[in-house]
Write a protein that binds this DNA or RNA. Structure first.
Ligand SMILES: [Zn+2]
Ligand SMILES: [Zn+2]
Ligand SMILES: [Zn+2]
Ligand SMILES: [Zn+2]
Lengths: 157, 157
DNA sequence: TGCCTCAATGTTACATTATAACATCAAAAG
DNA sequence: CTTTTGATGTTATAATGTAACATTGAGGCA
């Protein structure tokens, strides 16, 4: 490994600050609860369900957020491109490009079906073009080009 | 349009017969209920939920299949590569390659998020190779290469 | 034929994921 | 301060999916 921190090298404070600025510049607010949900996702290497997040927020912040609110918060964070919904897993993961703002790029997600570990990887333009062409040939319009790949991580394989 | 039948050109009897032979050759059985569920999916241009299928089977075959059984039947049909589960939509679609047995190929599914119309398109080998490479670089193993694309069909766009 | 066995299906109960509808609270603006 | 609007709470319920155990039914064999 290159350093002694591994993935936890990422400075959460920095990411949150960027997320706050991002929201501010868009006229929205990263409230305390939204920040907690986002932080929980950033700190997790694994995708979490809405109900997982309820547990994490209770355990880590002593904060009881009802399911309905968690879903609304996730919807907000997704609309701000800070979080991605992984439909194949019914779980949520923080965007890995909050700093750098590549969030609008087309990503593929490698999701371990055993432990939910997730990795977000940008799609190459050539791939995007090919996917777009396929969709067009079939008379469909691509709405959300997010790809989710059903995988096993090396720990689980 | 090339002919007056459109997609309904596909001869369902032929497909079912191939599916039966396929099962027989694998030592499994395409029972009456399994056949009904499979037929319902083949006849539908749209992906259907398990509960949709309960309704279709009741309406078309006067047959009341409990939810648990429908899920088991879908699991069986998927294990035989006759049906695909579209996880992003929580719906199911018949394989479009039952005749020809390309079922083991890697497919991408274009799914209309408005009406659930679905099209199965084979992935080009170059695409598969690229996806595989990405997965490998990230230390994941690809389990199921199925791609699901969130689209709008031309009718709904 | 009658029994045996195992696959298929039924039944009941429940878990998980998600949304609708309406009430309340709180921050920013005037 | 009040108004306004966005954010959150509350309650109920819908939609999707699974666990556990019971029953049925189709083939194989005495
Ligand atoms: Zn992202
Ligand atoms: Zn794993
Ligand atoms: Zn197929
Ligand atoms: Zn459509």
């Amino acid at each position: 490994m290159d350093n002694c921190f591994g993935d936890s090298m990422k400075n959460i404070g920095d990411i949150i600050r960027v997320a706050e600025q991002h929201c501010e510049s868009r006229g929205t607010r990263l409230t305390k609860k939204r920040k907690h949900v986002l932080t929980a996702l950033i700190e997790s290497a694994k995708a979490l369900s809405a109900y997982d997040l309820i547990d994490v927020c209770r355990e880590k912040y002593g904060e009881d957020i009802p399911a309905m609110s968690v879903y609304r918060i996730l919807e907000f964070l997704e609309s701000e491109n800070l979080v991605h919904k992984l439909s194949t897993a019914s779980k949520y993961a923080s965007c890995e490009n909050i700093i750098g703002d590549k969030a609008r790029c087309y990503s593929q997600f490698l999701i371990c079906k055993s432990c939910s570990k997730v990795k977000e990887v940008g799609l190459k333009p050539t791939m995007i073009a090919e996917l777009q062409a396929t969709v067009k040939d079939a008379s469909f319009k691509l709405v959300n080009p997010q790809l989710e790949m059903n995988c096993l991580c090396d720990d689980c394989a």
